[in-house]
Design a protein around this nucleic acid. Structure first.
Lengths: 272, 272
DNA sequence: CGCTTCATTGACGACGTTCAAGACATGTGG
DNA sequence: CCACATGTCTTGAACGTCGTCAATGAAGCG
């Protein structure tokens, strides 16, 4: 079974849909060599023969924005990588309080080898394309070829670092700092340099990005209510830290100002 | 250099000191075979020849309660395992707000292979004994023998899960629930079954443990102030959820009640 | 004994939540 | 085309939890 595409594949209508197919063109026939996440995903360290092996056991799946990918407690028959789009890991209490505990971007890994039920809810924030491997063959490959396990260790350590930074945000930052931190993280990861006519010298200070999250998703990320999220965004806008185009496109005239508002000690690394 | 003990080794005065030396007797001459964390630490999967190799490059260090082990940003020349005692990972903002982001118990691993400066402050909560490996030889071993990397991956995935559970606590729980959650976690990990005369049937419901943390450490763990910690502990005591002997010994007459107060969906696993 | 550190308790206020109303955009059907 | 419903977001007012500031208590140590 070389690949698989859900029957209900979304039609290409919105900008973000377009983007998915630009990032992973010709999805049905793509070979690992051509894969946009080839050098950052679990397969990053694989030699070409190992890549061939992966190529044989992989298949693609797509998920529509807003749809669940797996529910906590469900059996997971696959592990895999996000090829394009955003997904989230969330945890929920009986009374409905929910906390986002992970953010999955292209190249991030889904699933835990050696465990067969999901620990968290995973759902697609935007339309998502995933590169999946059935668990058993993947685990077999892991024990045979150290490259996959090595890369997975690196990635897991990075995620652990991210989770710990996030814990500081959740535990010790004010609502305003939380919003600024979230925007700084997003901007750092996928900012498009804004050509706002500020001149060459200042280009690196400015950034802009599309918010992939609803207010509710941001609230769940930051441990706030949607009202507080909304208020703090308004406040940052009023103070000139950000400006908005519509409700989902954020313009940051000065990243240093934003980072300062985030109260971050990680002082910079602007364009890393 | 088969081993090394700091000159300023603490004298055995307090109960927790005694405990360390009971858990790791004859520290100076201990061989991996005899090590109390042999089957849970990063060496858990090693064969006896690999163990010999580790034995040759390891050395012990002790740290007194309250002392720093490393500071964020410092060069780390070693990685290693906690053999006995508690240590904490903390992150601090410029203005002094600090958040604990990791809790290191016996068998937990310290340091990140492939990185040479510490990302967090590590400090000893109780007296701590560590089994250290100089980084370079350890990394060499990691690439030669898959058993170490495999085990490290498992451990890192476990830590990531713990961090994510913690994020729910930080982001969504009330102060009272936070305290109850902390006590439930500690009790689950090291409770002594209390013989409180409740009869055989109820023994499993009761537990008691020594609090290794100051109020400040608990506050940093939970994203609270020490005053709130103190008030909530008093409240739980007043409501009969816990009782105290002195300020640092906690008795839980009914673990189910405590878990209920923690608002936890992870409904049980009492004696895991 | 006083000194220091750690913990408890109270009074007060700020920050964020809750509850509620209204704005705005999108889609549906008459 | 408008009326109406729906979902997302914004804004206001009242409330409550938790943080701040301060005083006091308890325990360990020179």
């Amino acid at each position: 079974m070389p690949f698989y595409i859900d029957a209900d594949q979304p039609s290409v209508t919105s900008l973000s849909d377009m983007r998915i197919f630009m990032e992973a063109p010709e999805l049905k026939s793509i070979h690992c060599d051509e894969c946009p996440i080839r050098h950052r995903a679990v397969c990053a360290k694989c030699e070409s023969d190992e890549l061939e092996q992966l190529d044989r056991i992989k298949y693609y799946r797509t998920f529509e924005a807003g749809q669940p990918i797996v529910w906590a407690g469900d059996r997971m028959s696959f592990v895999g990588s996000v090829v394009s789009g955003y997904a989230t890991l969330t945890q929920t209490m009986e009374d409905g309080r929910t906390q986002m505990v992970g953010l999955l971007l292209p190249s991030d890994f889904v699933g835990r080898p050696g465990r067969d039920s999901a620990a968290y809810n995973i759902s697609a924030t935007t339309d998502v394309v995933m590169c999946c491997f059935r668990k058993k063959p993947f685990e077999d490959m892991m024990s045979d070829t150290p490259h996959i396990a090595q890369r997975l260790l690196e990635m897991t350590l990075d995620e652990l670092d991210a989770a710990r930074e996030w814990m500081l945000v959740l535990g010790r930052k004010t609502a305003r700092e939380k919003i600024a931190s979230l925007f700084a993280i997003i901007a750092r990861r996928e900012s498009v340099l804004a050509n706002t006519g500020l001149g060459v010298k200042n280009v690196a200070r400015a950034a802009s990005f599309d918010l992939k999250f609803t207010r509710e998703a941001m609230a769940d990320y930051l441990g706030l209510t949607i009202e507080t999220v909304s208020r703090q965004i308004s406040a940052l806008k009023k103070d000139g830290v950000i400006s908005l185009q519509g409700k989902r496109h954020v313009i940051v005239p000065d990243m240093y100002r934003l980072i300062d508002e985030a109260g971050d000690d990680s002082d910079g690394g602007l364009l890393v």
